[in-house]
Design a protein around this nucleic acid. Structure first.
Lengths: 112, 112
DNA sequence: CGAGAATATTGCTTGCCAGCAATATTCCCA
DNA sequence: TGGGAATATTGCTGGCAAGCAATATTCTCG
């Protein structure tokens, strides 16, 4: 399953959001989600296979941790689109400049 | 259908990629994709409903244009994750420093 | 060893989505 | 006005994914 497909599921995005603030056990995640435990485990398996989380055993528990590097693929796909909305902002700025015409351009560099 | 779900379909991402280099008619897109015309029209409908493309009639033709602003939602979701892979690079740098230095006390807190 | 906790796996059902063919619609032009 | 081009819509099917209950697995501890 592609990274994009994995992210299409809202509960999986929610799991990633939760892991952003720290590692969690399966029980933690089940408590935070409107899902039964087997369903959460299934989502975690997909997230693992997509390289978006990693797991470390701790006795019977499994501690899940975010692996945000897996999201760089999405970020890379998105990259060439940024110039398009940046372009839009430039046009907006230009129009504002035309209205005010005070010349103090708070210009900033692009990303990338 | 959520923006993420719309992007989960590879052919839809391909359509967006094609539109990045210029406006296209449905016929253009059908020629460039391994799909029948009704299927392409269906994808275009979903892309339109998600605000990722816009359409302008030209006689019997419909010219589709990218609306990249619709992707800002994805970009915004991704934003808080960027610091994580930046953090990873920092950790790598720290480790390299530790090797060159002497290595004592190179231990660092992982997550927050 | 036995019980219980934590998690994964299995088996099943349901709903939805991608795909196509066929048809409808809309427009231009002869 | 009729025909053909371009696109959308409809109706259908197959496959897959999400959900749960039940069960299996793995570990700790008394």
């Amino acid at each position: 399953m592609s990274t994009f497909a994995v992210l299409a599921e809202p509960n999986r995005r929610l799991i990633l959001d939760l892991l952003r603030s720290g590692d969690r056990t399966v029980t933690d995640l089940v408590a935070a989600l409107p899902l039964a435990q087997p369903t959460v485990s299934k989502h975690l398996k997909l997230l693992r296979e997509a390289g978006l989380v990693q797991v470390q055993p701790d006795a019977q528990r499994r501690v899940y941790r975010l692996r945000a590097e897996g999201l760089q693929e999405v970020d890379a796909w998105l990259a060439p689109y940024r110039r398009f909305w940046a372009q839009r902002l430039d046009a907006l700025e230009a129009r504002l400049d035309a209205i005010e015409d005070d010349g103090s351009g708070a210009d900033q560099g692009e990303q990338i």
